[in-house]
Design a protein around this nucleic acid. Structure first.
Lengths: 143, 143
DNA sequence: CAAATAAAAGAGTTCTTTGTCTTTTTTTCC
DNA sequence: GGAAAAAAAGACAAAGAACTCTTTTATTTG
């Protein structure tokens, strides 16, 4: 469904959101541990997201990652699109390049609904909205 | 969503179903052309499916691939499961191994519905049922 | 200003998927 | 039985994804 990089990215951003509600910052090592991901790999991914403004960071002692209000309001769809592109939102299930209403693959009409469901779900979910439930251990980001 | 191998497999099987309704057989070159896939790659995939009884084949002159009635009745879900395993039916969207009702990832509950939709669609679609529409050019398997 | 800290950057490595090429086996048909 | 046809098999090659390691840059703090 999503690439590994994208899975880690979502988990990391939700983790950062949860851990920095008080305005603090969190380091890459804690993030990697907190979501059970390879440290340098998630570091690369966050660097990329940082360059694109989807997460904020600060170097040096007491530095780390955090999220601006606008980043907290970003949708999961934004994250997915940034990392995996929009194949999941618009690609053909059978890999046809020109699959469309007028030239549909056998799964086109059925998959249209499914893609709409996925889009809607990712579009309406924000990075910030899971923090409380994560804090209460009603949701999990590792294992 | 699906691997390339799986995309080609579904397209190839639907193509074989369409082209052998009269009880004939069809060769690998025609299949590759018919679905616009790398010839040797789809050959490998069909060999694999053949070993597993999901498609029938015969060597030698006038040989080729065809489908038994039971293979025609197989569901797309069977094909997907054979090639990609059942990650799409049961895997966690965020890559957690132990994601479940009691230990859900943030997307678990929403994705459950989506996975059910996908499962239902693939389970109820058979290899044989698209032949007429393909023949009438209302559905397409290439480009 | 020096030392320490933490992210950024860069340069690989490894593994998996995708795709190619060649040889072998089986079958048909003359 | 020999030639031709077609799938099966095996060995590689290329590309991309996933992951690691080392060095650099920026920032803070004593």
């Amino acid at each position: 469904m999503f690439s590994k990089a994208c899975e880690y990215a979502i988990r990391a951003l939700l983790f950062i959101a949860q851990k920095t509600v008080d305005g603090s910052k969190i380091g890459i090592k804690e993030i990697a541990k907190g979501i059970d991901s390879p440290e340098h790999f998630i570091a690369k991914i966050l660097q990329d997201l940082s360059r694109k403004g989807m997460v904020q960071s600060q170097k040096g002692p007491s530095g780390g990652f955090y999220l601006h209000q606008s980043s907290l309001n970003a949708s999961l769809a934004d994250v997915v699109r940034t990392i995996d592109g929009d194949s999941i939102f618009s690609g053909c299930a059978l890999g046809l390049k020109q699959c469309s209403e007028v030239k549909p693959c056998p799964l086109h009409h059925e998959f249209k609904k499914i893609r709409e469901n996925i889009s809607h779900m990712l579009q309406t979910a924000s990075l910030g909205e899971f923090s409380q439930q994560l804090e209460k251990s009603k949701l999990f980001l590792k294992r």
